[in-house]
Simulated scan of single mutants.
Amino acid sequence: MNEAVVAFREAYGTEPEGVWAAPGRVNLIGEHTDYNDGFVLPFALEQTVTVAAAPWEGAPDGALEVSSLRAPGERVGVPPDAEPGSVPGWAAYPAGVLWALRDAGHKIGAARLVVGSDLPDGAGLSSSAALECATALALTGLAGIALPGAELARLAQRAENVFVGMPCGILDQSASLLSTAGHLLLLDTRDLGVRQVPFAADGLELLLVDTRVKHSLVDGEYAARRASCEEAARRLGVRALRDAGDLSALTDPVLLRRARHVVGENARVERVVALLEAGRAAGIGPLLTASHVSLRDDFEVSCPELDAAVAAALAAGALGARMTGGGFGGSVIALVPADAVAEVAAAVALAFAERGWAEPHCRTVTPSAGARRVR
């Protein structure tokens, strides 16, 4: 936060009016179910994207100037008439949020933003959604507009879907805006109903393994999976795969695999919630691993690094492990006995070293607070 404030002061010669922060997220389970009207179970991380912001005096309403601590000296100006697809790179995310807010009828003036982050990009931890959510809070905060978190999540999702061109579901934005410390967020993506699920796992830790394999889901693979799910639902005659039961009508083997993952994943989310609420956290381990197998074999969104991290963690004593995020790189989440964390992390590092891969980054994580104003 302080770095963003200093950078804002240096760039514009004045103090920001405020600083807003939005966390990244880990999805404990419920992958690729959100755009199928299904269930997801994410939680917020301690690491955040921060946005220092102030009105841009003299500029026309809707104009935006953004800079990032990760690109020192670079400023991106966005005109008020910017259309979807017209802003390249990372600046498309804050520009898209401003566009979505104004398109929804909210009067947003011109603003200057400086972005800071301690979230790694491309690690499957939703740094892009965190940027959207922090921007949404900053722009509405500057304008004196108070919107419910669920509405901000929908607007941030629209920014990514329409302005950026990434057909994501609403999981990431909801997790960033609606999470509470010490809880998992059970989200029904059909009606956007939420339930805070306490995470009490005495003697257990959640180990996050960043494989450091970067990915970009805008390259078509994510969109292809979503299109397959929509086609499978159409052939089954249901509104979404959330409603599917008997899959025997799917004769196309690819569509069958995609649908089988979604149906099974929704069931796994519900089972994990039931176990956690019954105080049986250790019992969720096999469900996490089953989720990874399904993502690897039926949804085909894993990669060698993710598979190696899961296998090494399980062999070293993890109770369960799975890739988290959209796939094709990113991170693994593992449920590990507290006294085995160091051993599991070392085993994963060794597995990567033996294959000549860059060393992964391992750390324990806890469910943390959602987006908020911090200054």
Rank of each mutant, 00 (worst) to 15 (best):
Met1His: 09
Ala4Val: 06
Ala11Asp: 07
Tyr12Arg: 14
Gly13Trp: 04
Gly18Ile: 00
Ala22Phe: 08
Gly24Asp: 09
Val26His: 09
Leu28Thr: 09
Gly30Gln: 08
Gly30Arg: 05
Leu41Tyr: 00
Ala44Tyr: 02
Leu45Ser: 11
Glu57Ser: 13
Gly58Leu: 03
Gly58Gln: 07
Asp61Ser: 15
Asp61Tyr: 01
Gly62Asp: 03
Ser67Ala: 15
Arg70Asp: 15
Arg75Thr: 15
Pro80His: 14
Pro80Gln: 11
Pro94Lys: 10
Pro94Trp: 11
Ala100Val: 14
Val114Leu: 13
Val115Gln: 04
Leu125Gln: 13
Cys133Ile: 11
Ala134Asn: 10
Thr135Val: 13
Leu142Ile: 12
Leu147Ala: 09
Pro148Val: 07
Ala150His: 12
Leu152Gly: 00
Ala159Asn: 04
Pro167Trp: 00
Gly169Val: 04
Leu186Cys: 02
Arg190Val: 00
Val197Ile: 15
Phe199Thr: 02
Asp202Met: 01
Gly203Trp: 10
Leu204Glu: 04
Glu205Tyr: 01
Glu205Met: 02
Leu207Phe: 02
Val209Ile: 15
Thr211Gln: 12
Thr211Gly: 13
Asp219Gly: 06
Gly220Thr: 14
Glu221Asn: 06
Ala223Cys: 03
Ala223Lys: 14
Arg226Ile: 01
Leu236Glu: 11
Arg258Pro: 03
Ala259His: 02
Val262Trp: 00
Gly285Thr: 03
Ser294Met: 08
Asp297Arg: 05
Asp307Gly: 04
Asp307Phe: 01
Ala313Trp: 05
Gly326Ser: 07
Gly329Ala: 11
Ser331Thr: 13
Leu335Asn: 09
Glu343Gly: 09
Leu350Trp: 07
Glu354Phe: 05
Arg355Ala: 12
Ala358Phe: 02
Cys362Ala: 13
Pro367Gln: 02
Pro367His: 08
Arg373Pro: 01
